[in-house]
Amino acid sequence: MSDLQIRDIAILHGASEEFFTKLESVGNERKLDKGKIVFIHEEQAENFYILMAGWVKLFRETADGAQSIIDILPAGHTFGETPIFEDGLYPYSAEIVEPSVVISAPLSLLKEELQSNNELSMNMLKHLIRYKRGQDRELEHMTVQNAPQRIGCFLMRLADSDSKGPVTIHLPYDKTLLAARLGMQPETFSRALAKLKEQTGIRVKGAVVELDNLEQLINYSCQVCSSEFPCKDVVSLK
C-alpha cells in the first residue's frame, strides 16, 4: 500500500539506530479497515502508533454523542505519543477512516529514547510546535475565511505547491467527513463547494477536483489570510 519506511517518519528523525532496531523488533504492523477504533479518549496509553498508509481520524465525543474532529492525519504521521508528556491517558480517540497500515509500539520505548537522545527530543519538540502553529492557523481561518475559502485552502494542502499547469486533486475521504473536518454541516459544505466552483472555475467529479492552475484557488482562498501559499504553518497533505 505504501513505500514509506519507518526511517522516513519526519518526527522520528534523529532517533538512534538502536531505537529503530528495537522498534522493528517489537513494533506490531497491522492492516486496519475503515471504521476500526485504535484507542479511546482517556484510555490508559500503552502504545504509540505510526501511520504507514491510509488516514486516521482523531476526535473526541461531545456530551450529546457527536464527534468533535481534532484532525485527520495522512500516512507519515505518528499519533498517540503525547501521553508521555502528560498524564498517561490518550487525549483523543483514534479511528481509521480509510484502509490503513499502522505500526504500534510501546510508549516506554519512545520515552526511553527521548530521555537519552537530545536530537530526537528537539526534533519532536519542533514538530509539536509546528503542529500547534498549524492549529492556530486553522483557528484564524475559521475567523477570517468564509466556508468556500476554507474548502479551497484544504484543497491546496492536497496539491503539489510547485505545480504550474493543470492540477488534479483526489479527495482522500468522503465529503461528509471532509465537511466535519472543516467544521461544517454537510449541507453547508455542499453550498460552499458550489460557491467555490462558481468563484474559481474548479471542476468536481465525485472525489476528483480539477483546475487549470493553482492560482485559481490561491487568489480566492488566500486573500484574507495573514500567510502566503504555500503556508509554512500548515502541514501539506500531499
Rank of each mutant, 00 (worst) to 15 (best):
A94K: 03
C222T: 07
A53E: 02
A147K: 14
L211V: 02
K34R: 14
I96R: 04
T21V: 03
P106Y: 00
L58T: 00
I9S: 04
S100L: 08
A180E: 00
S25L: 02
K232F: 10
A75I: 00
S104P: 06
H41S: 14
K126I: 09
C231N: 03
G76I: 11
K232S: 04
V38D: 02
Q149C: 11
I84Y: 05
T188K: 14
D33N: 07
K205M: 13
A179P: 13
R130C: 12
Q199P: 10
G201M: 08
D212G: 01
R133F: 15
K22T: 03
L178S: 05
P172V: 00
I84V: 09
Y220L: 07
K175R: 11
S100Q: 01
I72F: 06
I103G: 10
E61G: 08
Q115W: 12
I218C: 03
I40Q: 11
G80S: 07
K175E: 08
H77S: 11
I202Y: 09
M142S: 11
R30W: 12
T168E: 08
H77W: 15
L12N: 07
I70Q: 06
V97D: 00
L51R: 07
N123L: 09
S226E: 07
P83H: 12
K175P: 11
V209K: 05
V204R: 07
L158H: 00
I202W: 10
Q44D: 14
V101A: 06
A147W: 12
I6S: 07
I9C: 07
K232D: 00
P166A: 09
K195S: 13
K22A: 03
K132V: 15
L114M: 10
L109Q: 01
L214S: 01
L237E: 00
D8I: 03
F20L: 05
V101K: 09
Y49P: 06
L178H: 10
E95F: 04
V102S: 14
V235I: 07
S93N: 06
G35Q: 01
T21R: 03
A10Q: 15
A63P: 11
D64Q: 10
H41A: 13
K205Q: 13
K132G: 13
S121W: 13
C231D: 01
D233L: 13
E29R: 14
L217C: 06
A207T: 02
E113S: 05
R181I: 09
T168V: 10
N219P: 08
N47Q: 10
T176Q: 01
Q67A: 07
A207L: 09
G183Q: 04
Y92Q: 06
L237I: 03
S163F: 12
L107F: 00
